[in-house]
Structure formats: structure tokens, C-alpha cells
Design a protein around this nucleic acid. Sequence first.
DNA 1: CGGTTCCTTGAGAGAACTCAACGTCGGTGG
DNA 2: CCACCGACGTTGAGTTCTCTCAAGGAACCG
Lengths: 263, 263
Amino acid sequence: MAFDMHHSDLLSAGDVHNPSIVSSQCGQCPVQAQCLASGSSAAVLSRWQQAARPGPDLRDSGNILHTAGDAVHHIYIVRSGCLKIYTVDSDGQERVRDFHLPGDIIGLDAALDGGVHRVTAAAVTPSQVCALPQREVLALLEQSPLLARRVLQRLSHALAEAQSLAGDYTADTRVAAFLLQMQLRLPRPPSGALQLPMTRRDIANYLRLATETVSRVLTRFAAEGLIRSDRQRIHLTDPAALQRLAAPLCAPAATTHEHRLAA
Amino acid sequence: MAFDMHHSDLLSAGDVHNPSIVSSQCGQCPVQAQCLASGSSAAVLSRWQQAARPGPDLRDSGNILHTAGDAVHHIYIVRSGCLKIYTVDSDGQERVRDFHLPGDIIGLDAALDGGVHRVTAAAVTPSQVCALPQREVLALLEQSPLLARRVLQRLSHALAEAQSLAGDYTADTRVAAFLLQMQLRLPRPPSGALQLPMTRRDIANYLRLATETVSRVLTRFAAEGLIRSDRQRIHLTDPAALQRLAAPLCAPAATTHEHRLAA
DNA sequence: CGGTTCCTTGAGAGAACTCAACGTCGGTGG
DNA sequence: CCACCGACGTTGAGTTCTCTCAAGGAACCG
């Protein structure tokens, strides 16, 4: 998943799901701790904060942030909600490339490579994003080696994940891995059950499966006691079993090294 | 394909396939024109050239450049030959992630992210590589924004390609796209026929197909007059038809923008 | 010339897809 | 308030694509 940042559990579900309470100030930003700029020098940080402003308010599912082919004017950071990134094939088929959750960055790759969006970004649930002008971001990258270094890390990490996802895995493996991934990335409501923001159709498209296949796998997982499923609300009752199913996708032998950070 | 650089047609096939005539001097480097450092300031260029030295000589197919889990000491640039990059799954299965041809960079992503190789790199045909110490590369990246910018471009480009490859395409589409890709990247011998350096097994593994499936598709392509195939030597007699077959993988609608270069 | 590896071809099996129908949920308007 | 509608989700039946298993032929090497 591109530019993933596994968010911490600092936030309650309510904070993230209700955009109205999210202030536009960096100081109150819910994903502050994962901000690319955090830890930068005062000069860089202040320039960053002055450049950051609220992006368009995506109040309805389907609202478009940008379309493939658009020139890049801003990069966006998801503050709340969920967006999907997709391309449209020559035959009009939508292909979901990634989901973006709070803390994730949208458009950085396009900003760095060509200045034209290669994908369309649309809200899956009502979402709030923070916008930074491309110019400012590029300038800051040249000014701050730390920032550039972080961007490189995210990109190479994203590359590794994209290559992992490219394998030919069974539907079971894909769905199990997806559920576990979502459990890590999604804010966990007090109930402990996962609240999936996206439809089965989007999940299936992302996993390169048919909608029916996803549905069948989930039904079977439920029958086998691995999960309890009620539409969007899914409870992982046997994470260990899911982990075993997902193992081929998650464990390319030597991927468990610590994530070293520069300076 | 990670860090691809479509090489120009400056070289005759002989130059690339015969490592013995490749000098270790940058001045005679066959991939000079695609070098990351080309166009840099005199200071950067000279530091780069002083850091660059011949890498291990991979005279036999199967020779290992580095293994997954190794600490990154150098990044390598392929000067001649062909290498494959692969991981080994938990069940011991090899998974070819990419092939690297002259001009491609090996290990840059690992150098930038964690300092540990995530993949193994092995020679497919006798190959020569150029080695640059990781330290020097990282230092140069901080010294030269142009260099950093180029690396970012390559990474984001590689990311886009990796995500394209992740789709669920038919065997026909994958094989057609592979052949066309190879025609672009491989030095074209005078005969006009493609000389594939890798085995069917490697191709199949890379494309996530069974060896037999690749073989069958090639046989059928030949029967339909799209190619003429003699083992490793393959002539694309109807590139347009192959292009149509490969379209779903190659044409995510709006991907034909020019490749802008910074400064 | 034997052995090994690579490539090809065939037959059968399995996983996921397509087509199709039905149930459920949430909104809208009569 | 309730009936209707559309989107979403589930389930079933049959098909298709690719894989696995198996065997034979061709090239390469000692």
C-alpha cells in the first residue's frame, strides 16, 4: 500500500470518523505524530505548517479529490475518513490501487515523477484532508535532507509492499491479509470490531478478486469461526489463524528487520 | 520493473554481451548516458567517479551478487549481462521480482530503507556491474539535490510499474507485455530477433505463471503468426498485435504523458 | 555417450470467474 | 407510515483459465 503509515492507537474511533471535530490547525492534527515533518528543524517545521491548509471537504462518498491526468498542484495528507486511489483501464474498468487512511499521503509520487496525477482519488467515506502546495513540498525537500530521506524511505517501503502484493495468492490469503492489515490501520472502536469503510466491491477490486469471491471467503471464515461478520462490521475472533492464512503474503522470509531511522 | 531505465540503442549487441571488452573506467562505461550522475556538477561527478569501482565479476549464471538479509555495503549498476532479483518464500519457493539489464540500478531501495537487502541478486548470464559504496551514495544524495531528485523519480516510477504488474491479467497479456518490454530494454542484435537471456522458468516465475503456461502461450503466439520462436531467440513479427494483447497492462488510460525531467 | 537441464505437449484437476437470482438495508416520496 | 427503489451483499450453478502431474524431445556438458 503506497505511503502507508500505520497509525498509532492514539485516537478514539470517534475522533477519526467525525470530521467536524478535526481542527485545521497542525497543533490539533490527529495524525501529527506521523507527520513527515515531525522532528524537523524549527525553520522547516514552521514553513511546513504555514504551507499546510485544509483541503477540499469531501463530505460525501464518491467525492473526487483529483482525477488521473490532472496536473499536481497539491499533495494531500488524510486527516480523517478513507479515500480510494484508482485508475481506469482502457476498457473503462476501475482498478483500485490503494486505500488511504488517516496519516497517509496522497499524490507524493506523482508530484515527484512528472507532475501529473496518474490516478484518481475519491472519498470512500466522508473525509478531511490537509493540502500542501507541490512547490512548497519540493522546495522543502531540497532544503531538508531529513525530509527527503523520509520520503525516500516511504517510497522504497511502498515499492516493497507493492511488489509483495503482486504475487499470485489464493483468495483466502488475500482476504486474510487484508483483514489483518485493516485491523492495524483502522481505528479500533471500543467494541473491538473492525468497521470497514469500503464496500465489498472495492475490497474485491483492490484484491483483484470478484465481489462474490470476497463474499464467499468471508462467509466461510465466519463459518470456520475465524471472524464474526455483520456487513461492514467485522470482528476478528481468531487473528492467529488469519495470520497463518496470510503468511505467504506477509512473510517473504527475511522481512522482519527493524525499521532503522536516519539521524 | 524496479529502477528501469530503458537503455538507448547506442550499443551493439556484442558490446553488451561480451563483458571482456567493457572497461572499468566511467569514460568507457557502456551505460554512461543513463548514469544517475550524468549532468551533475563537476564536483559531484568527480566524487561519483572516484567512488565507482568494478563490482564482483559474475562470470557464471547463478553467481550471487548479494543475498536477502545481507547488510547493504554497495549499490550496483549493471554494465553488461542480466541479473535477476528474487526473494525466497517461507516455503522455499523462489519468487523473481525483477530482471536487471545494463543501466539498471541494484540495491538502491534497500540502501535507502533499512540498510538490509530484502532480495537476492544473481546473474542470469555472465554480467559485469559497477559498485558504489552506500556511504558515498547517501552522502552524495545529501550533497546534490539533482541526484536526490533523480532517485525520487526512479523510485516513484518503479512504484507505478510495480503496481501495474500487480493486476490480474491473462497469461496472454502478461507474456505479450513481457516480450514488448524486453524488446525495448534488450540490446537488439542485427538479426532483429530478440535474444532472451533468461529461461522459461524465470520468465514464468516473474510473470506469476507456470512454466508450461508460458511455453504454451509462446507456442500459440507462434502458431498465430505473432512471433517466430527458436528457444531463447524470438522474433516479434507482429508487434502491433502484441501491443493490443498487452494493452490492459500497459495502458492505464492516461499514462502516456511525457517524462519530464527536473532542471 | 550418458546425464542433466530446459523446453514442449497432453490430460485431468482445481480455483476463481461469470451469470443469475434473491435477501437486506437505507433513502425517498406518496 | 409504508411502499417502492436502488445499491449492496449473499448464495448457487456452470464455465473457463491456469495449474499440476506426467512424459517425451532437444540442447548442453562432462
